[in-house]
């Protein structure tokens, strides 16, 4: 059972890819931060398996329950202004707790995470390292350690980096890949090219603009992706993997 992250530049189709991946991995569950999976699935009239979405409040309270082991006290503290403020002020705390939740689920089932875009995704993974450096002791330090150990094990985590055949998306994918290979050598990385365009087989009557999009765009895309390798290339409009 493993954790599968889907990331890439904003707007490349992470949510779409997460939905399609869950259709292929029938027993996998999904997780997200942005409440977009359901509406994406509806476009294809698909029903999705469990979607996990954790609010800060839920995570905070669950964490307290585990740390303090006294349910009513945890609830009371989690409602207090002080705790809420501390929670807000603690860097990386939300990210740490999220990672921990996802890892816990992935210990029993395959979990596909519709992750944030590039920079935020890297920052999310880094939360554990940062927490370990910032906090010299305490339960968060311990938690950060556990998370880092998980990412350092083989066969626990895969990352799908989704890109478009556009310069900025391609460059950003390369940057994420380099970062992951350097910092998380045990993670399995797969590179996905989304929305590759194919020229129409016939000559069509189109405006100048549309002509360029129909016939020039596929050729330009081929040139742009020439020096890149992908594990999978999805054509524009693909509805299965």
């Amino acid at each position: 059972m493993a954790l599968y992250f889907v990331t890439g530049k904003g707007g490349v189709g992470k949510t779409r890819y997460s939905v399609l991946l869950s259709q292929k991995m029938k027993k996998a569950e999904l997780a997200e931060l942005s409440q977009a999976l359901q509406s994406e699935a509806e476009k294809f009239k698909l029903s999705l398996s469990t979607i996990h979405s954790f609010s800060k409040e839920t995570l905070g309270e669950t964490f307290l329950k585990k740390s303090l082991r006294i349910p009513f006290l945890s609830h009371w503290i989690s409602q207090s202004k002080i705790f809420q403020t501390l929670f807000q002020l603690a860097p990386n705390l939300y990210e740490l707790l999220l990672l921990r939740q996802w890892i816990q689920i992935a210990e029993n089932k395959d979990l596909i995470v519709d992750a944030p875009s590039s920079g935020h995704f890297i920052a999310l993974l880094e939360a554990a390292k940062a927490a370990k450096e910032m906090f010299d002791g305490g339960s968060l330090h311990k938690l950060a350690d556990e998370i880092l150990k998980y990412f350092q094990k083989a066969n626990t985590t895969s990352v799908f980096i989704v890109s478009l055949p556009e310069t900025s998306a391609l460059e950003e994918s390369t940057a994420i890949e380099e970062n992951l290979r350097k910092n998380y050598p045990k993670m399995r990385i797969q590179k996905i090219l989304n929305r590759k365009h194919i020229a129409p087989p016939k000559e069509l009557e189109l405006s100048k603009n549309m002509q360029q999009l129909a016939y020039d765009r596929p050729k330009l895309e081929d040139e742009r992706i020439f020096s890149y390798t992908f594990d999978q290339i999805l054509e524009e409009g693909a509805v299965t993997l």
Partner: peptide, 26 residues
């Protein structure tokens, strides 16, 4: 005294030194 409790609480989660740093930062 509220501050004191907040400090104690945060020590549990982030360790003594870090808690001191947080409050200095604040």
């Amino acid at each position: 005294s509220t501050m004191k409790h907040a400090f104690e609480l945060s020590r549990v989660f982030i360790g003594k030194k870090s808690a001191e740093r947080v409050f200095e930062f604040l």
